[in-house]
Design a protein around this nucleic acid. Structure first.
Lengths: 213, 213
DNA sequence: CTCCTGTTAGTCAAACTTGACTACTGCCCA
DNA sequence: TGGGCAGTAGTCAAGTTTGACTAACAGGAG
């Protein structure tokens, strides 16, 4: 699963109605250029594709007041909302160590009820444990671990990473259980989009690290 | 940077002369199906592309004795070897948290001299520290960290991950310094390819976790 | 007035990735 | 003796991603 569809769906959903450039800006506001590969081309492509698949409804609008070519605005459909929630759930539980999917999942977890978010994260912890067990068991050769040579370091790295993630996830679950953040159905949601005309405090003007690849 | 070119170049290089199916098998032997997206299509595509770019030399051969279509064998060229070493160096130093590139880098680090590997890994540690400093400084809003809401958790995750990786890398450097593994120019290198006809102890027959995505 | 730069908004070809499909051989087993 | 399965080797179309490019307007400098 690529994170782009999730990010774009989520951005359009929070906006209510948005065109490509607004989605781009929202993603930058979320710092997504740091951890996802959300280039303009990918974003516009995802919008068109999902419109074709009925997840978004496209509206052609008059050329913008602020210059530039005519734009297309998008709204999320019923099917799109379902797909969005499905993707959030999948991203929260699936352990596949992709930073972009993981980060997007956290960004959107508050769109689920609190209890469900906790349950899904606990499922994630469980999956990490299973993965760890399977990998350590499978990749210790009968002749002893030394037989793998430096290749064994790769396994070592995986396990180390998995442990770190598991620890972090447990911490997150505790914070959520302790009442942190505002989840679906708990009143005023956290505002994660830029209002029209609001400037982006995290804009890329002054070069973040890792901006380019 | 995608890990596929690095993996394919490295596999062909270790084999001396290899066709696509052998590369596929080597990657599976290395467990690369666990952490990289090395599907058949990508591998064959990379081979052709790199042959076109002069990094590999292609040899058409008679249809295999073991059935199947006629195969193409590849050898690495001078330019290919240079590109391979360049990619290994880049993958070792660049901190971009992609598991596949990182894992491949470790797999091939022994193709460099020991001192250089240590130096590159130390550069990596330095880069992680810089990235961490920049991110923590930049993403703490003036109004206090609470202002970010649950979005702050994403930053928290990055930092946690970066710290874990930094710790692991320091451990690796120490092990290498302590004389572990056999590096370039230190005698008999570690054999990382399957001999002709040798069966793969890590074949995917019995389903690893995470096999499918 | 004209040029230059910055912002808004998006397109496009080329490259890459995916997953399903083809085609051929050997071998087992009924 | 022929049908099916497993292994070998690779192709292909459809989809996705990349990075560079286009185009229009606003505002300020000269």
């Amino acid at each position: 699963m690529s994170a782009i569809r999730l990010l774009v769906l989520g951005a359009v959903r929070q906006h209510g109605r948005a065109h490509g450039y607004q989605v781009r800006n929202d993603l930058e506001y979320w710092g997504a250029h740091e951890w996802s590969h959300a280039k303009p081309g990918s974003i516009y492509h995802a919008l068109k594709q999902m419109a074709k698949q009925g997840l978004l409804r496209a509206h052609e609008t008059a050329p913008s007041t602020a210059g530039g070519p005519p734009r297309t605005e998008y709204e999320i459909t019923e099917a799109g909302t379902e797909e969005f929630l499905r993707l959030v759930r999948e991203a929260l539980t699936e352990y596949d160590q992709k930073v972009d999917v993981k980060s997007a999942a956290i960004g959107f977890m508050v769109d689920l009820p609190r209890a469900e978010a906790v349950a899904l994260l606990e499922e994630r912890i469980e999956k990490i444990a299973q993965w760890r067990a399977a990998v350590t068991e499978h990749y210790i050769p009968a002749e002893g671990p030394e037989q793998l040579g430096h290749i064994g370091e790769i396994m070592h790295l995986w396990v180390h990473t998995a442990d770190a993630e598991s620890a972090w996830t447990r911490g997150l679950v505790e914070r959520i259980r302790g009442g942190a953040y505002t989840f679906a159905g708990e009143g005023e949601p956290f505002v994660g989009v830029l209002a029209d005309g609001q400037e982006n405090p995290y804009a890329t003007g002054d070069r973040h690290p890792q901006d380019d690849h």
